[in-house]
Design a protein around this nucleic acid. Sequence first.
DNA 1: TCTTGATTTACGATATATCGAGATCTATAT
DNA 2: ATATAGATCTCGATATATCGTAAATCAAGA
Lengths: 203, 203
Amino acid sequence: MKHRHTHDGRGRPFAAHEDFSGHHGFHPHSHPHALHDRPGRHGRGGGRHGGGRLFDYGELRLLLLAMIAERPWHGYELIKAIEERFGGSYSPSPGVIYPTLAWLDDMGYAAIEPVEAGRKRYRITAEGEAFLAANRAAADELLARVGPVGREGSEAVPAPMIRAMENLKLALRLRIQRGSIDAATAEAIAAALDAAAQTVERS
Amino acid sequence: MKHRHTHDGRGRPFAAHEDFSGHHGFHPHSHPHALHDRPGRHGRGGGRHGGGRLFDYGELRLLLLAMIAERPWHGYELIKAIEERFGGSYSPSPGVIYPTLAWLDDMGYAAIEPVEAGRKRYRITAEGEAFLAANRAAADELLARVGPVGREGSEAVPAPMIRAMENLKLALRLRIQRGSIDAATAEAIAAALDAAAQTVERS
DNA sequence: TCTTGATTTACGATATATCGAGATCTATAT
DNA sequence: ATATAGATCTCGATATATCGTAAATCAAGA
């Protein structure tokens, strides 16, 4: 396997112009004019309707890199996550997600975890971190615009709740494994769970 | 001839899913929104129940592999065992069990014991053990979700409990999505969950 | 033969990834 | 400054893989 398909966007895509400070050396100070000092279209406040682009030039790959910097994803997950973030009104086509991921891989910014059965899970590399750091300003601006994409339920849920949820989950698992749950016991447990659900509901 | 794909599939598994704040869990066949079924051809087949999946991507073959790692089974036994584990509310169709077993065989993860009267009994191989070890985290999470399948003393989870668990899970998910959980609210919810856990524990 | 265990085949739906055509933007040469 | 080339975003169509149901088929036993 490992068939490097001959894709147009691959190989060595934008070579000459963007000084991407990728390999050999890389000075953090003399930061390249990579992605964030593009005068003119900054906050994209214009709201250009109909067919306008959601992401400007290097933005999509920056967003993907920032997302896989948090945790590994695979392409379909990224599509669904971004789609959900935009409330379903926009969903990046696979035709742009997968080539971008492949590009990140080719550049050494992301690597494919060995996976099973057709799913490629990408994780960030050291070079990717460096690139992300070099473009942190643009990345932060992007994440601020898009909002929290990956950390939906982990950052927002308070710790005590997570602890209690894990606790209950474990108790249920142990109880089920113990076996011998008669009808009355099942009803009692169900009632307790329903009571908790009601408390949650009107909290 | 059925060309079984040659996949190496080695290495890290997929991410572990949360039971509560996550997506999938214990639901036998409860899905949020049913998609419309086309009233088209009569013929045969046709999933009028295509919605919620119990196992996502590589989970079924992991479960089967984990089961035959304990002792050899044949397909029908696996179907019945899983069905009993879910209290009869769900039973994996043979159309998914047998191809998966054939896949495990082709991959070298399982082997067919000498056929006895029309049935094929599968046992795990060394490669299968290696694969299972590589995906231990996901496998354990799966077994925890499904419960101890095939061991003696295993009984089905009563329907009221499953319903109540689903109910609580949904309530928590909705509450988390609503956001704005201050510390006091979190404590109240955690206390309710802990109370339920205690009830479960001494039931 | 009829029933029951056990497997195979057919078909559909979803998940995941690949490929191709077209539109738009940026950079660079003229 | 304009033209051109190339890179990137976007949509779709397509290709597999896997999960799913239901019927058809096959192999013993009553």
